[in-house]
Design a protein around this nucleic acid. Structure first.
Lengths: 150, 150
DNA sequence: ATCTGTTTAGTTGTGCACAATTAAACATTA
DNA sequence: TAATGTTTAATTGTGCACAACTAAACAGAT
């Protein structure tokens, strides 16, 4: 029939909008961009904000623990944490009981950041304009997918 | 009551797992990683694969059109497309009728890539192990969210 | 104590992602 | 057509993200 085209570009699978990956990839970047005005006012990047959220909750965490929670490795975290250390937001020191580990601790300037950032989740929620039910449904589906992938 | 702590870290909003953004950010990266074995075999990165999916469908697109479809700007696309040009997958030339635009065209090696990549969506689908219904539901929710954000 | 294997961060190199700026080409209007 | 404004890519600089590798510290076994 046709001149041997085993992969027509209009196969549903092959179209960008029919895939799951592209919407997630795009939404992820757009969401990060939506945080920008709030984070920029605090001189923060989104991954740095994630580190702060964990430190506000736990005060002290090793690089390994941060990596497990954020699904990031030391290749990403080490330079990121060094930048945050330079701004006096946190300290990095070896664990005396296990010199392999590096303990990340919140410093006063980092703790103070919590008050300035505490309204961000609310503001983002408003920006999304989603019903709590839809929000929770989507969150659970992503959680499931993440478990499947991680 | 308490000594003025307006932002307790255990406020539901402030916890990582109660946010929408982190799961999306994490799923996005894990999904890209799940593509890795298939893409690496073709010497492709995920954003390059996205460019290919569009070119397989349209053969020719300007940088502006690619940017609109992928939600990426020239700061990202120009170097990415230059790398793809070096591998002879596509060509970059100014539009003679409007010298501002750059037309990206598929070259033979780029077209040949389609046959090698055409099984990737299927394989990814199997990896996700989702029912078609859940897949479609999640896709639609993300599409809605993307419209809200973009 | 020594050897072996594992764990933990750090380092190096590549490739996005994006804000901000630049410059050329085009469009519009005076 | 000259002046002004807009559009389009490219450039520059910063910060992730990750694969691959290195090196030090620890654990467990002889």
């Amino acid at each position: 029939m046709s001149k041997s085209t085993p992969a027509p570009s209009d196969t549903p699978f092959q179209k960008l909008e029919n895939q799951l990956c592209f919407p997630i990839y795009a939404v992820s970047r757009m969401l990060t961009k939506a945080y920008q005005p709030y984070l920029q006012a605090l001189d923060l990047t989104y991954p740095q904000y994630l580190v702060f959220m964990l430190l506000w909750e736990h005060t002290e965490l090793t690089v390994k623990e941060l990596g497990e929670k954020l699904l990031l490795d030391s290749g990403t975290l080490t330079p990121l944490l060094k930048r945050m250390e330079q701004k006096q937001w946190l300290s990095r020191r070896r664990d005396p009981r296990d010199e392999r580990s590096v303990i990340i601790s919140l410093l006063p300037a980092g703790r103070a950041m919590q008050q300035q950032a505490c309204h961000i989740p609310q503001q983002m929620l408003e920006k999304l304009a989603m019903t709590p039910a839809k929000f929770e449904a989507l969150r659970l589906q992503l959680q499931t997918l993440l478990t499947q992938l991680a």
